[in-house]
């Protein structure tokens, strides 16, 4: 988008003032003082300046002469390199940000303290604000302390609960083992020889008794006595009916 030539001439003043005319001449300011003692410092400064400018030109020349990395390196190498460089940049960035934040804070506090010195503290809104902030800070600290205390209490309660839980757990374990023990004991008892012998004896006795019972019963029935009439006899007969294995 070009500007019409007429407009351009009117809007653009001649820069160096050589053209004069309606344009604004460049404005020159600064130190042209040529006092003798200043000259040395001026010369020194100029030296530093020239060095810096030379450095800039050099870096410019280097930058334009530098071969593009594609020509020298393989693709993978380039990728690795890029990653490496990116990491480096990130690191530098973080470090820089940290430093900047610190400096910002220092600057702010300096400015603040300077301001506080200047302004009459009675009328200063700043002071009031600071006081307010301090008050709030105190409140915050107090609340924090309270919340910490509460948290501690909570922790204590939790600890106790945990302890109780552990205790009950161990008790339960004990009960369990006790029960198991009893079971085991019982099993051992049942399997012992003595018990077996006793059981065998018992079985034998039961069989003998049964035989005797049957004998008596048959004896009574054989005698053809009416056992049902005599209550004592009836009881005896019925008693003989009992199945001993069921006892």
């Amino acid at each position: 988008m070009e500007m019409p030539p007429g407009e351009q001439a009117a809007t653009e003043p001649p820069d160096s003032g050589a053209g004069g005319g309606e344009g604004r001449p460049p404005q020159v300011a600064g130190a042209q003082e040529t006092r003798a003692e200043d000259r040395l410092t001026l010369l020194l400064r100029l030296r530093a300046q020239t060095k810096q400018q030379l450095l800039e030109y050099k870096s410019m020349v280097d930058a334009s002469e530098e071969k593009t990395p594609e020509q020298v390196m393989q693709d993978k190498q380039i990728e690795a390199k890029i990653e490496e460089l990116e990491n480096e940049i990130e690191e530098v960035k973080t470090a820089f940000e940290m430093k900047k934040l610190t400096i910002d804070r220092i600057q702010l506090s300096t400015a603040l303290s300077k301001n506080l010195e200047k302004i009459n503290p009675q009328t200063s809104v700043l002071m009031d604000n600071m006081k307010h902030i301090l008050k709030l800070n105190k409140l915050i600290m107090k609340s924090q302390q309270e919340s910490w205390d509460l948290e501690e209490k909570l922790l204590d309660v939790r600890k106790k609960r945990l302890q109780l839980k552990q205790a009950s757990e161990s008790k339960l374990l004990e009960i369990q083992t006790e029960k198991n023990k009893q079971k085991d004991d019982l099993a051992i008892m049942e399997n012992s020889d003595k018990i077996k012998a006793i059981k065998q004896n018992l079985q034998m006795e039961i069989q003998i008794t049964t035989v005797i019972q049957h004998m008596f019963q048959n004896l009574i029935l054989g005698s053809k006595a009416n056992w049902a009439e005599d209550p004592a006899l009836k009881e005896t007969v019925l008693q003989l009916e009992k199945n001993l294995t069921m006892i």
Binding site: E12, P26, G30, A31
Partner: peptide
């Protein structure tokens, strides 16, 4: 030494 140039565009 400062030089200030002004340009509309």
């Amino acid at each position: 030494e400062l030089r200030v140039h002004l340009a509309r565009s």
